[in-house]
Design a protein around this nucleic acid. Structure first.
Length: 515
RNA sequence: GCUCCCGUGGUGUAGUCCGGCCAAUCAUUCUGGCCUUUCGAGCCAGCUACUCGGGUUCGAAUCCCGACGGGAGCACCA
């Protein structure tokens, strides 16, 4: 029978008769683990995270680090932390440790750690090999000229000097004080891929290195050190971001010429969050001007900023793995990270009363009470506190504005109140204790409150322009028991949102995490 | 300008290599409902997508060609 001649409805009916089970769509569960690695063998995978110690880690670094780390764990392999500190102009001592702290906070530990700058002698040897093989040459042209030649696909005269002479100058570069010389790969000056037009392999930078001091003046470039280190350190699956894709050819050519092992190099897209730039170029000026408070500002996607705001490392990990290693350039909303975070913190955070924009409410005939309220009714393990109440309360101005004289509402977990007067003072009247279904329940404090201001982060940039309303400060009263928290804790202020509260020298500050 | 990469709902992603099981995954957002002593969580339902045009094929999100759109690179930075 010609099934396709039937209408859709008839087809369905027909199917129901023959094979009803086919009509039921069972939900497919998607697992959020990373896809398999090409040629990935249990125990045989080595990955690496190679930051330059030039700043604090941000969510973009976290993506790379988590992907590298997770793959190593997935295959029972090895994960290497390598500081790519081959430019003494950029590397700073403080950031080696700072970045390690950031990684540890993320929950990442490494099997091996080293600095590229420890291997400079090795790099020199390989460079010498290239020169002897006539695959690299010393160039003394100035950078503008080199640029021009690259652009036009022209070779310069330095390319013709013979390998012996190049070697002599190379040795001089290392040992003496000559300036203005670089070592270049003999690539192809007419190659359509401009990355192959004799890229620079080594250059002279005379600056104290944070670890090596003044031991070296000739430093390898990323093209050289990256490829060589990946190969020599046994990395099998190095990842990097898409903007390096054009350099793949150079990476493999170098390893080819040197006759050393070629890893399986892969690229993924950079992670960008809407309105939260990651680049130092954009963040540094804001810090210098004082527009943001530092690299741990809660508006920033630095790991320190996220931490301060109350984002947990597990949420970052989930978020990153959900994004995966696609090459599609996309801009994710911060809401996705928030959602991941909320799922984790919701079941484990205590609920407190916090009243922003407080106004006084007097309930003259209120019964005196000592009310025990669970920190989270759904999980008694989180404990409870007892609040003593009398006639005086503080409630949110916004809530009171919604109510008219005569309206009845409930002070949550306490009793029902009717509004008697709203003129100068807000006066209420005790109505009853039993819960009135569907009544408005609002949070409150007594007159034994503590002052607590909450900083609420908003988008740092809107349409590429700095948002000068990006940091909002809300003043309010929190119930007294909030001051019992230790140094810091993420809590939920009911009907307000999740807030990370810091308790430093008896001074409380709140940082709004998310709704 | 040249070269490379990418293009699935509002957002992000799975599927693309190896065409059929895709009348397209999952998450998030949004809308409605349920539940709840929070505007949070949970539960249920709903909306919305294969950039376009050709080709190959019995059959294309998937392969080929072209267009369009987005991103990146063209550093003595990584």
């Amino acid at each position: 029978m010609e099934v396709n001649n039937l209408t859709l409805d008839n087809q369905k009916k027909e199917l129901e008769d023959i094979a009803p089970e086919l009509l039921k769509k069972e939900k497919k569960e998607r697992d959020f683990s990373l896809p398999d690695l090409p040629n990935g063998e249990k125990g045989g995978v080595v990955t690496r995270f190679p930051p330059e110690p030039n700043g604090y880690l941000h969510i973009g670094h976290a993506k790379a680090a988590i992907v590298d780390y997770e793959y190593a764990r997935m295959y029972d392999g090895k994960f290497i932390l390598r500081f790519d500190d081959t430019n003494p102009d950029n590397a700073h001592l403080e950031f080696y440790d700072a970045q390690k702290e950031d990684l540890k906070w993320l929950g990442i530990d490494w099997d091996e750690e080293y600095n590229t700058s420890d291997n400079i002698e090795k790099h020199y040897k390989l460079a010498e090999q290239l020169i002897r093989q006539d695959h690299a040459y010393v160039c003394t042209c100035d950078s503008d000229f080199i640029k021009e030649c690259r652009f036009n696909g022209k070779e310069c005269d330095c390319r013709c000097i013979e390998s012996g002479e190049s070697l002599d100058i190379w040795k001089e570069m290392i040992s003496s004080s000559i300036q203005g010389a670089i070592l270049r790969l003999r690539g192809d000056m007419t190659c359509v891929n401009t990355a192959m037009r004799d890229p620079t392999l080594f250059r002279i930078i005379e600056k104290e290195h944070p670890l090596q001091g003044d031991k070296y003046r000739v430093w390898p470039t990323y093209d050289f050190s990256g490829a060589v280190e990946d190969s020599l350190s046994g990395v099998t699956h190095p990842f990097r971001t898409k903007e390096y894709e054009l350099r793949d050819e150079c990476y493999f050519k170098l390893l080819d010429l040197l006759g050393i092992r070629k890893p399986h190099l892969m690229e993924f897209a950079r992670l960008s969050i809407e309105g939260m730039p990651v680049s130092k170029r954009k963040i540094k000026p804001l810090i210098d001007k004082g527009d943001v408070l530092g690299y741990d500002d809660i508006r920033l996607p630095t790991l320190r900023g996220l931490k301060k705001r109350g984002i947990l490392p597990e949420a970052i990990k989930k978020f990153v793995i959900e994004q995966g290693i696609s090459k599609v350039e996309s801009s994710v909303t911060f809401g996705l990270l928030e959602a991941a975070n909320r799922k984790i913190i919701d079941p484990i955070t205590k609920r407190y009363f916090y009243v922003s924009n407080p106004v006084k409410l007097t309930v003259d005939n209120a019964p005196h009470k000592e009310k025990k309220i669970d920190y989270y009714p759904r999980d008694k393990k989180l404990g409870s506190r007892t609040i003593e109440t009398d006639k005086i309360f503080y409630v949110e101005k916004q809530d009171m504005e919604k109510l008219k004289v005569g309206d009845i509402f409930r002070l949550k977990d306490l009793f029902n109140v009717k509004i008697i007067n709203k003129n100068n003072n807000i006066i209420g009247e005790f109505v009853s204790e039993e819960l009135i279904p569907d009544s408005l329940k609002i949070q409150w404090t007594t007159d034994r409150f503590v002052n607590l201001n909450v900083f609420i982060p908003h988008l740092l940039f809107i349409n590429d322009k700095f948002n000068n309303k990006s940091l909002e400060e809300v003043k309010g009263y929190a119930e007294e028991s909030i001051s019992n928290i230790k140094k810091e804790e993420i809590v939920q202020f009911e009907r307000f949102g999740f807030v990370r509260v810091e308790n430093v020298n008896k001074k409380l500050t709140g940082f709004f995490t998310h709704k």
